[in-house]
Design a protein around this nucleic acid. Structure first.
Length: 131
RNA sequence: GCAGAUGGCCAGGCGUUCGCUGCGUCAGUUUCUGGCGGAGAGGAAAGUCCGGGCUCCACAGGACACGAUGGUGGGUAACGCCCACCGUCCGCGAGGAUAGGGCAAGUGCAACAGAAAGCAAACCGCCUGAAUGACACUCUUCUUUGAGGUGUGUUGUGAGGCGAAGUCGGCAACGACUUUCCAGGUAAGGGUGAAACGGUGCGGUAAGAGCGCACCAGCGAUUCAGGUGACUGAGUCGGCUGGGUAAACCCCAUCGGGAGCAAAGCUAAGCAGAAGGAUGUGUGUCCUCGGACGCACGCGAUUCGGUCCGGGUUGUUUCCUUCGGGUCAGCUGCUGGAGGUGUCGAGCAAUUGGCACCGUAGAUAAAUGAACGCCCGCGACAGGCAACUGUCGUCGACAAAACCCGGCUUAUCGGCCAUCUGCAGAC
RNA sequence: GGCACCGUAGCCCAAUGGCAGAGGCGGUCGUUUCAAAAGCGACACAGUGUGAGUUCGAAUCUCACCGGUGCCA
């Protein structure tokens, strides 16, 4: 691991507007038992993530804990993952997902998404409105 | 020691590393970045059930509706909250519960059962008289056996039989059916029902009845005493008693303007309009004779918490309604307040006055996290007579601010403290 | 965050405070048919979201929870 680059997670590395979320939902996606990821390329210069946890996961405390675990997993692995992507992380509705589960799923699924995006690099994202 | 009652408190702790959001300061520099310092979820932050602060709108009034509250006194900015007390109910007790004004202002409701469900009467039943049957006795009439009548007594019936009348059947005895059978006194009793016009006893009576009396319960009036008051206690008198339900309509008293920080204000950016409705009459001044301004009436819009009356503002060539389009970015509001802690007073208490000290979250796809180590607690397993020891754990209650306070309600692992009660034991 | 509204059979929904509950669609069985559909007949399916209270009695009235829906800049 590169020791010189700090493991940060600032506000610019987060998806915060509804239109960006909608753009991601029209991109490619991949999932496993713990996680579902929507991804699309961006031109901001760095990768960004967004987190979406539905009300089915429990009360506000349980939902907040899942969001923090997802952000921590991404923060720890941000330099090992493909760059210049917008990711939306959606956890699966199961109670036993821990931090290590999310880390492993994140690594595995982003590699899959990177390969899928490279295989169709010129795809004009048919789901995205071309406004 | 066991079982409880009430009130209060805590909400796993410490350390290292990485990370997040504000604040202060310094440096680069004015887009931001970095260093240092310091701060960073709750007792319920929750539900949004009440009350206020604050912001905007409105702020002539009247009538009628509407909503909330409901023992008394106090506290408070205010409350449906809190404290103290009163009444009622529950508990052996410490204590707990209590929407607790008024059905003697009016209207309504009570299924089923029951004689009857609200005015008290009707029905069954009980009793008396008339009437009538039987028996006994007395008197009397007719010609003896005998028959009839009068009176008295006992007893039966008196909605029920051997009563009376009619029809049918039958030789008859008799049987069947139909009709009819007077007047009154009672409310003791009447399988019900949630609830039945006081309860028990004695007297009394034709039978009965608060009809009378004694005690008890309840109601009303009144007097005295205590209390600020709700109310309590004692006495006298009265008729003997008038049910329940107002979280049924309602009456009484008190309170209530509307909306809510997605309020409200500012900056920046951006877009495209369409349809429908209203646009009247009279008159004055100016006057370039086309218009402008003003007044009155009418009409429209809006507002005065709801409706009506009545008013305010405004429009009458610019407004209103609906549909559509654009933006949904930033700033202020935004945290110092009915603040907290300690102490000295007032008060039974809730609460409140003085003084001193403290500085205590401000996010916006929404900040508090992760990893490791030690201790604490819990659970499982193993060893051990036990005390205990060791290992393991996605182990650590309920739950996270969103303008801010005061309450209420609900959720909650485990534990601590204080006061008190009952039972058992010892002294 | 704030403000409103609603919970009754599998679904849609009715009910005067009174025997605990109407109807439609759907379901099961029978009848009919060669078989089905339609029709006809029968049956089952609720204890009214949960818990307290008022009342003799609550789906209904009151309160507190639970679940769901809608609106705002």
């Amino acid at each position: 691991m590169n020791e010189t680059r700090p493991l940060l997670l600032s506000r610019e590395q987060r998806i915060r507007s509804g239109s960006d979320f909608r753009r991601c939902y029209n991109g490619v996606r991949a999932g496993d038992d713990h996680l579902l990821i929507f991804a699309i390329r961006n031109d901001v210069g760095c990768s960004r993530i967004g987190v979406s946890v539905s009300k089915k996961h429990g009360n506000a405390v349980k939902r907040n804990r899942k969001k923090r675990l997802l952000r921590e997993a991404w923060r720890a692995h941000q330099h090992d993952l493909p760059q210049s992507l917008d990711l939306v992380l959606v956890p699966r509705q199961r109670a036993d997902s821990g931090l290590n589960d999310f880390k492993a799923s994140l690594r595995r699924l982003t590699c899959k998404l990177e390969r899928r995006l490279k295989s169709t690099p010129t795809r004009p994202n048919p789901g995205e409105p071309s406004s």
